[in-house]
């Protein structure tokens, strides 16, 4: 009798948990895209930041408090990416499940070897990030690790669907590996080529594809371009035969255009967030596809 009641209760519990999908909130749309691949139809997904806006400067809108209040899991980039807005929201969300350190708080930077970790903290060098460069998710190599991190996190919070998440991870990483070979092939002819970026948010992407993105329109992170610095950049571009400038959609395109005119270069609008540019809405793979194609086309223009 006791067993019967227990089994009925257990089946009721499982029925209830099977119906309620895991409520996942991602801070940015790149992490959301990966979470969608892993979670599939087992999760409901909300993204806080718009794909077109600067992820460092998102308004901590009260509606986000509500979204976080309802969340089972929050997925953040971490490494100070959302430091200007997420902590205040988490404080107000009154949701113990997702506070930093709780199982429902998935920080994607965890377990990733970060680049540009400063030896000393000195803001005279610009708005540096103490934990390292937080724009890591755009690297497919990191994308794979993030997918694993998200899978582990979702599985921990929703053990009933753990197998599905793991199977989805396998599907995703297989597709990613196949695509990666394609992308590497597409960018192989340009190995070692120098590109210019507005802001230093592309070191991981450069590493993955053997590109050199070490010239920036900003003299220091977060400090807007000055004419003297731009002049230096233009000279270096000529020296290094760099003729592609990449600019994130939320940064000043006009400055890049001016430099491009002077240096005889091409400006390529880029984004690290699915939906940031037309043609990238599909998801993580579609975004990388778009970037690789756009860069390969621009790099092939002049040799």
């Amino acid at each position: 009798m006791k067993n019967k009641i227990l089994s009925i209760l257990a089946s009721l519990f499982f029925a209830a948990s099977a119906q309620a999908k895991l409520n996942v909130v991602a801070t940015t749309s790149d992490l959301a895209a990966i979470a969608k691949e892993i979670g599939g139809d087992k999760i409901t997904l909300t993204t806080l930041a718009k794909p077109t806006e600067d992820p460092h400067f998102v308004d901590a809108k009260p509606s986000f408090i509500l979204k976080l209040n309802h969340a089972d899991v929050v997925i953040e980039g971490g490494a100070e990416l959302e430091i200007g807005w997420l902590p205040a929201l988490l404080d107000q969300s009154r949701n113990e499940k997702i506070v930093a350190g709780a199982p429902g708080h998935i920080s994607c930077a965890k377990g990733l070897p970060l680049l540009d970790v400063p030896a000393t903290l000195d803001r005279s060098r610009g708005d540096i990030h103490a934990a390292g460069n937080p724009h890591f998710a755009i690297s497919p190599v990191n994308g794979r690790i993030i997918a694993q991190t998200i899978t582990d996190g979702l599985a921990q919070n929703d053990p009933a669907n753990a197998e599905t998440y793991r199977a989805n991870l396998k599907t995703f990483t297989t597709a990613l590996a196949a695509k990666m070979a394609e992308w590497q092939q597409a960018l192989a002819p340009f190995k070692g080529r120098s590109l210019v970026a507005y802001h230093d948010s592309w070191p991981y992407f450069a590493r993955d594809f053997g590109l050199k993105i070490e010239l920036f329109l900003e003299p220091k992170p977060g400090i807007p371009p000055t004419p003297s610095h731009l002049a230096e950049v233009i000279l270096k571009m000529k020296e290094e035969n760099a003729h592609v400038i990449i600019v994130d959609v939320y940064l000043n395109r006009r400055t890049a255009d001016t430099v491009a005119r002077e240096a005889g270069a091409t400006v390529v609008p880029v984004t690290q967030f699915p939906g940031g540019l037309k043609g990238t809405e599909g998801g993580y793979l579609e975004l990388e596809d778009y970037l690789v194609k756009a860069l390969a086309a621009a790099l092939a223009e002049k040799k």
């Binding site: 806006e53 460092h56 308004d59 977060g222 994130d248 940064l251």
Partner: peptide, 11 residues
């Protein structure tokens, strides 16, 4: 009330 551009850079 606040309006912020969809492609806001640095807010």
């Amino acid at each position: 009330w606040k309006w912020k551009a969809a492609n806001a850079g640095e807010g």
